[in-house]
Computed example of a mutant assay.
Amino acid sequence: MSYEAINVTIDAANQVATITLNRPDKLNSFTRQMHGELAAALDEVVAAHARALVLTGAGRGFCAGQDLADLDFTPGAMTDLGDLIGEHFNPLIRRIQALPFPVIAAVNGTAAGAGANLALACDLVLAARSASFIQAFVKIGLVPDSGGTWFLPQRVGMARALGLAMTGEKLGAEKAETWGLIWQAVDDEALQSTAQNLAIQLAKQPTRALAAIKQAMRHGLSATLDEQLDLERDLQRELGASHDYAEGVRAFIEKRAPRFEGR
C-alpha cells in the first residue's frame, strides 16, 4: 500500500518495522488521513511478521497532536471531539498497546498533546535530548486525551501529572527520563540508530514472552495480588509449552546463545 502522511519500512532480515509520521511541515500533526494510514500500516506490520516496531517522526518534531485545520469550526457543525477521539485516537492507542511485540517510540523533537501520549502508549520511549513533551490540551481548554490521564499519574505520580496537565509546561527529555516518564534520553544524532539497535535486540528475544510481559505488567496496575499471581501462573503455563522456552533451556544447558524464533 502507498502512503502519503506516513512512511513504512520493514527490515525483513531483522524482522523490524519502522513507521515514520510524515507531515513535517505540520509537525506531523494528526489528520483523519493519517489515522487511516496508521491503521493500515499496523495491519501491514503484523502481516509481515515483524517482531519489533519503531515509531518516529520526520523533520524537527515527533507529533504535535491533532491538526486543528482538519477540524470543522463552522457554527452549528463543529467537529464533535468525542466522536473524533472515539473513532480515531482511542482505537489507535488500544491497538498500539495490544500489539504482540515491542513498540519503541523514537521521539525526535516536540511531542505535544495527543502526540505526547501516542509516544507514551509505546512500550519503550527513547527521546533525543533536544526533544520535549507537552500536555498542551489546557492551552485550548481541553483535558489530556489519548491515554494521557492514565499514563501520566502512573509514571510520574499525581503531583507531577497534575502540574504537567494544568500548566501545559514543556518537559525536556532529560527531565522526563529522570522522572521515569520515558526509558532513555539519548544524543540527538544517536536517536535513530539507538532505536533501531534496540528494536533489533528485542526482535531476537522470545516474542511471546515479551507480549506476555506487556500483558502482565498492565494487568498488575489494577489487579489484586491474588489476581496477579493467578495470571502469572497461567502465562507461565502457556509459555512453558512454547518453542522458545525449550530453546532457552537447551541453550542454557549447552552454554550457548539461544536462537529464539518468536513462537
Score class of each variant (00 low, 15 high):
residue 11 D to T: 06
residue 12 A to E: 15
residue 12 A to D: 14
residue 12 A to L: 12
residue 13 A to I: 09
residue 14 N to G: 08
residue 14 N to D: 15
residue 14 N to W: 09
residue 15 Q to K: 15
residue 15 Q to F: 03
residue 16 V to Q: 03
residue 17 A to P: 08
residue 18 T to Q: 15
residue 18 T to H: 12
residue 18 T to R: 15
residue 20 T to L: 10
residue 20 T to M: 14
residue 20 T to H: 00
residue 21 L to V: 08
residue 21 L to C: 14
residue 22 N to K: 12
residue 23 R to K: 15
residue 23 R to Q: 10
residue 24 P to T: 05
residue 24 P to Q: 04
residue 24 P to H: 05
residue 24 P to V: 04
residue 25 D to R: 11
residue 25 D to V: 14
residue 25 D to C: 01
residue 25 D to I: 05
residue 25 D to E: 15
residue 26 K to Y: 02
residue 26 K to I: 01
residue 26 K to V: 03
residue 27 L to G: 00
residue 28 N to G: 10
residue 28 N to R: 07
residue 29 S to N: 14
residue 30 F to I: 07
residue 30 F to L: 14
residue 31 T to A: 08
residue 31 T to I: 11
residue 32 R to Q: 11
residue 32 R to H: 13
residue 32 R to A: 10
residue 33 Q to S: 12
residue 33 Q to P: 00
residue 33 Q to V: 13
residue 34 M to I: 03
residue 34 M to K: 04
residue 35 H to W: 14
residue 35 H to S: 11
residue 35 H to G: 06
residue 35 H to P: 01
residue 35 H to L: 09
residue 35 H to T: 08
residue 36 G to W: 10
residue 36 G to N: 13
residue 37 E to Q: 11
residue 37 E to K: 06
residue 38 L to K: 10
residue 39 A to I: 03
residue 39 A to E: 08
residue 40 A to C: 08
residue 40 A to G: 01
residue 41 A to C: 00
residue 41 A to H: 02
residue 41 A to F: 03
residue 42 L to F: 12
residue 42 L to G: 06
residue 42 L to K: 04
residue 43 D to Y: 11
residue 43 D to M: 02
residue 43 D to L: 07
residue 43 D to P: 04
residue 44 E to I: 00
residue 44 E to G: 05
residue 44 E to R: 11
residue 44 E to M: 12
residue 45 V to S: 01
residue 45 V to I: 13
residue 45 V to T: 04
residue 46 V to K: 14
residue 46 V to R: 14
residue 46 V to Q: 15
residue 46 V to Y: 13
residue 47 A to L: 05
residue 47 A to G: 10
residue 47 A to C: 06
residue 47 A to F: 07
residue 48 A to H: 10
residue 48 A to W: 02
residue 48 A to D: 07
residue 49 H to E: 15
residue 49 H to T: 13
residue 49 H to K: 15
residue 49 H to F: 11
residue 50 A to I: 02
residue 50 A to K: 00
residue 50 A to R: 05
residue 51 R to S: 02
residue 51 R to I: 05
residue 52 A to R: 01
residue 52 A to I: 02
residue 53 L to T: 00
residue 54 V to T: 11
residue 54 V to G: 09
residue 54 V to K: 09
residue 55 L to M: 09
residue 55 L to N: 04
residue 55 L to C: 10
residue 56 T to E: 09
residue 56 T to K: 07
residue 56 T to V: 12
residue 57 G to T: 02
residue 57 G to R: 01
residue 57 G to K: 02
residue 57 G to C: 07
residue 57 G to F: 02
residue 58 A to M: 09
residue 58 A to F: 07
residue 60 R to N: 15
residue 60 R to H: 12
residue 61 G to Y: 10
residue 61 G to I: 04
residue 61 G to T: 12
residue 62 F to R: 07
residue 62 F to I: 05
residue 62 F to H: 11
residue 63 C to F: 05
residue 64 A to R: 04
residue 64 A to Q: 09
residue 64 A to L: 03
residue 65 G to W: 03
residue 65 G to R: 05
residue 66 Q to K: 10
residue 67 D to Q: 05
residue 67 D to H: 07
residue 68 L to F: 08
residue 68 L to W: 08
residue 68 L to Q: 11
residue 68 L to A: 13
